[in-house]
Computed example of a mutant assay.
Amino acid sequence: MKPFIVLLSVFAISLLTIKLLEGNYQFALSARIAMSVMLLFTAIAHFAFTKGMAMMLPSSIPYKTEIVYLTGIIEIAAALGLLFPSISTLTGWLLIAFFILILPANIYAAIHHIDYQKGTFEGKRKSYLWFRVPLQILFIIWVYFSTIAV
Rank of each mutant, 00 (worst) to 15 (best):
I18N: 01
I18R: 00
A34C: 07
Q117T: 15
H113C: 12
I114P: 08
Y116Q: 02
S88P: 02
L29G: 02
F41H: 07
S9C: 12
Y25D: 02
H46C: 06
S127T: 14
L57F: 15
K64L: 01
L101I: 10
D115S: 11
A31Q: 05
L16N: 05
R132N: 11
L82M: 06
K51F: 10
E122T: 12
G23W: 01
E75W: 13
L138R: 10
N106D: 06
Y108Q: 06
L8W: 14
Y63N: 13
I137S: 06
L8S: 07
K2P: 10
S60C: 15
V37F: 04
M53A: 09
T120A: 14
V133D: 09
I107A: 09
F131G: 08
D115L: 04
L90E: 10
R132L: 13
R125K: 15
S86M: 14
N106M: 04
A97H: 08
I140F: 06
F121M: 11
L83Y: 04
G123W: 04
F98L: 07
L129F: 13
L70F: 15
A149W: 14
K118Y: 03
Q136V: 00
A45T: 08
V150I: 15
L70S: 11
E122G: 12
F131Q: 06
P134S: 07
G119F: 03
L83G: 02
M53C: 12
I18L: 08
G23Q: 03
I87E: 02
